[in-house]
Amino acid sequence: MREFPLQAAPVWVDVPLISNQEVYMNIALIKKYHDNMPRQEAWRLAVDCLGKIGLEHIAYKRNPVLTSEERFGVMLLRAAMVRAAMILIVKPFELIPHLNDIQMVTSMLKTIDELYVSCHIYDYQWMQEKYGDL
């Protein structure tokens, strides 16, 4: 994060969603603030991106009612909104505790691969078996 401070985009339990904003607004916020993207355009982009990972139905929900997978998806899209995003997923199994392997995360990343430059996943050594061949 120190090396690429403008591109670093964390997906981490310590960087939660803004609770008084709907999902689409959380995602759109990055574009509206950094790129000064007009509100409607940023909202449309957010809803389109949610559609890509099959989560458009949660666009108007707020953080407390989301499932772990939904919350992870939203945090991932929010991170991908950073310009030339270098996504850093920190301890994904802390975000989705009941997940048995990394399959769901990698497939989500593949679906939105045009939205980011690179992605790094950080976790404890003892979680290695959950990552398989990755």
Partner: peptide
Amino acid sequence: TEMAVMKVNREMKTLETFRIDIIDY
């Protein structure tokens, strides 16, 4: 209350992490 809740929920940290200036936003 809104500010205090955001602080407790660590949402301020979210804004800082995504380089969103708290004074501006």
